[in-house]
């Protein structure tokens, strides 16, 4: 465990908690893509199949449970909470994410570290996490609504990606045979898509700020 990865895990967790608290506090999920949040929950559920079989460390086990619980809590809030669900932009959040799930699964069947259930689902979760932001990106381009996507959320999400890339560079130079090609390549694609999301976030934020200025 290195400080970059620990900080990356912490900023990732904080970004999820910021979103959950924002939705719960404002009782609104306007501008947030339920599909992206469902994909994130699926990422954690398929990545941590080894939760009860492989014990890496207490930290690892606790964090896996927290990631699964917090991502499911967001999906539950957006689907079931009577007040929150009313503010969901159902007719704007129309990205066909089932095709993305299928494409990632086929890719995981072809490209994995070992052809076992656990490894295929692990690779699937890595590919899925890379593209999970797409529905949110499309919704943001359509709605331009950043009320619930606070700047802090975007900041911590970016910090998570940046710190993980530094972690991989650090491990590459300090560990004799650190090879996580699937995670690294997919992580770079994910960071590229996040950069695109941040760009559209900035455009929306700028537009909204202009709109709010006293005429």
């Amino acid at each position: 465990m290195n400080i970059f990865r620990f900080a990356g895990d912490m900023t990732h967790l904080i970004s999820i908690l910021i979103l959950l608290l924002k939705i719960y506090a404002t009782k609104s999920c306007a501008g947030i893509s339920l599909k992206t949040q469902e994909l994130y929950a699926l990422v954690f559920l398929t990545r941590y199949l080894d939760l009860f079989t492989d014990y890496v460390s207490l930290y690892n086990t606790v964090m896996k449970i927290v990631f699964i619980a917090s991502s499911l809590a967001i999906v539950w809030c957006m689907r079931r909470h009577p007040l929150v669900r009313r503010s969901y932009d159902k007719d704007l959040d129309t990205f066909r994410h089932q095709y993305v799930v299928l494409a990632c699964f086929v890719l995981a069947l072809l490209l994995n570290e070992k052809f076992t259930i656990q490894e295929v689902f692990w690779a699937f979760s890595i590919y899925l996490e890379a593209v999970a932001i797409l529905p949110q990106l499309v919704l943001l381009q359509r709605s331009g609504n950043v009320d619930n996507l606070t700047g802090q959320y975007v900041l911590f999400l970016g910090a998570y990606r940046g710190l993980y890339i530094i972690n991989w560079i650090y491990r590459y130079f300090t560990e004799d045979h650190f090879t996580r090609w699937i995670a690294c390549v997919s992580g770079l694609v994910q960071t590229g898509l996040y950069a695109d999301f941040f760009y559209y976030y900035y455009l929306s934020w700028k537009t909204n700020t202009k709109l709010k200025l006293p005429a």
């Binding site: 465990m1 990865r5 895990d9 990732h12 990545r47 080894d50 492989d54 890496v56 460390s57 690892n60 964090m63 896996k64 990631f67 692990w122 972690n167 560990e175 045979h177 650190f178 996580r180 995670a183």
Partner: peptide, 10 residues
Amino acid sequence: NKDDDVKDEL
């Protein structure tokens, strides 16, 4: 060796 295979990243 084995311990490297274990997925230690979240």
